[in-house]
């Protein structure tokens, strides 16, 4: 085979492999959406035709919708508090030199590295001693902790790209530190703040184990889905699943708009890395 022909063959093989991988990744999501809109009681072929029956059942039934309501309450609240906390911390870490700065950054990232099972058991132990468990706000308290780490990572990435001179120029021109923070740093950090919030929201919205341990009867959506899943075959799960994927999809578009430019921003447009 000629050199060019061999190269072609490799590239074709590479793309086929990416294709197979994408099918593996998206097959479950596709199936769930497909069967949410079919008459079939069980997810099996042949398809019996389009129907919105399961969506109607979902909204009439109520439990999953109540849980969705709980999640819609807890996740944005947790994400907002986590974003505020992590913006302040990221600002301090980025601006000030102090001993133990790297250690502190490492500690802030830790909660996402520790498995939910461990953190869940640990929280339950402590919160039950303090009689704080079994309520929606216990989930909120723990989710703020869990989502601070990803939000912090994104915001810190953005802040580290802010040239130091911007803030110093504001001080020289007579701005107080507070004014400089409000007028210079926050506008600059805004894409990072939005991206951090979206990431925090996603982490909280999908989090199951910690919520399962501390939620009690105020279930968040993943906890409620798990209870239904363990009990019966219920196609309204397909319907709620489709709705959740839709929400995730919207968040993902936000991430694509705010987070990816931060990561790839500099490389955009410069074709420095042409394919083989």
């Amino acid at each position: 085979m000629t050199e060019g022909g061999e190269r072609r063959a490799w590239i074709v093989a590479a793309r086929i492999w990416i294709g197979i991988f994408l099918v593996f990744l998206y097959l479950p999501i596709f199936m769930l959406i497909l069967f949410s809109m079919q008459k079939n009681q069980f997810a099996s072929f042949p398809l019996m035709g389009f129907s919105t029956e399961w969506y109607r059942k979902l909204f009439n039934d109520g439990t999953l919708i109540t849980a969705l309501g709980n999640s819609i309450l807890v996740s944005p609240a947790a994400a907002t508090v986590a974003t505020i906390i992590s913006f302040l911390a990221a600002y301090a870490i980025n601006r000030f030199e102090f001993r133990g700065r790297n250690l502190l950054t490492g500690i802030f990232i830790m909660p996402v590295l520790i498995p939910g099972l461990i953190l869940g058991v640990a929280c339950l132990g402590l919160l039950s001693r303090l009689h704080l468990n079994g309520e929606l706000y216990s989930v909120f308290l723990m989710h703020v902790l869990l989502t601070t780490a990803p939000a912090l990572a994104i915001i810190q990435l953005r802040l580290s790209q802010l040239p130091r001179s911007h803030e110093e120029a504001a001080w020289d021109l007579g701005a107080t530190e507070w004014q400089a923070l409000r007028r210079v740093v926050i506008p600059w950090a805004l894409p990072g703040i939005v991206g951090g919030w979206l990431l925090a929201f996603t982490f909280s919205f999908d989090e199951f184990l910690i919520a399962w341990f501390v939620a009690g009867f105020d279930q968040t959506l993943p906890v409620a889905i798990f209870s239904v899943l363990k009990a019966v075959v219920d196609p309204s799960l397909n319907a709620i699943g489709t709705i959740v994927f839709l929400i995730s999809g919207i968040v993902l578009v936000g991430v694509e708009m705010f987070v990816l430019p931060l990561v790839f921003g500099r490389e955009q447009g410069t074709d420095s890395n042409p394919g083989v």
């Binding site: 490799w10 590239i11 590479a14 793309r15 990416i18 991988f21 994408l22 990744l25 998206y26 479950p28 999501i29 199936m31 769930l32 996603t202 919205f205 999908d206 199951f208 993943p222 889905i225 798990f226 899943l229 799960l237 699943g241 959740v244 994927f245 995730s248 968040v251 993902l252 991430v255 694509e256 990816l260 790839f264 074709d271 420095s272 890395n273 042409p274 394919g275 083989v276």
Partner: peptide, 29 residues
């Protein structure tokens, strides 16, 4: 090595995107 640079970002986005969907629901699927 097999995707032109301008399409790499899209390929990455597609392969990482499922991370944003609920793990529990993917297991159910």
């Amino acid at each position: 090595y097999g995707v032109p640079a301008r399409r790499q970002r899209l390929a990455l986005l597609l392969t990482v995107a499922p991370f944003w969907s609920s793990y529990l629901l993917r297991l159910y699927a």
